[in-house]
Simulated scan of single mutants.
Amino acid sequence: MAELVSWLGAERTGRHAAVRHHRRRRVRRRCRRAAAIGLWGRSQYIAAWVCLVVGVHLWPMAPVLQSPSLVALGALLTVVAVAAVLVFRPAGVAQSAITGAGAGIALLGFAIWAAVSVFA
Rank of each mutant, 00 (worst) to 15 (best):
R32W: 11
A81I: 09
V50C: 06
A48I: 01
A35S: 06
L86M: 11
Y45N: 02
G38L: 03
P90I: 07
L4C: 00
A36H: 08
S43H: 14
G104S: 02
A103P: 07
V50Q: 00
A103W: 09
R26I: 12
G102N: 01
I112L: 05
R12I: 01
V56I: 15
G74K: 00
L65D: 05
P68M: 02
R28A: 08
L77W: 07
W59D: 11
P63V: 08
I46T: 11
V85P: 10
A17I: 01
A34P: 12
L108E: 09
R12T: 01
W7D: 06
A47Y: 03
H57N: 13
V54M: 11
S117M: 11
G74I: 03
G55L: 14
A34D: 15
R32I: 08
L77G: 08
H16I: 04
R28V: 13
S69C: 11
S69I: 10
Q44H: 15
L58Q: 13
A36M: 10
L39E: 12
I98V: 13
G55V: 11
V56H: 13
T13E: 14
W49D: 14
L77H: 02
H21N: 07
A47C: 05
R33E: 15
V80T: 06
V5A: 09
A103N: 02
G14W: 06
L8T: 01
I98E: 13
L73Y: 12
A2W: 05
S43N: 08
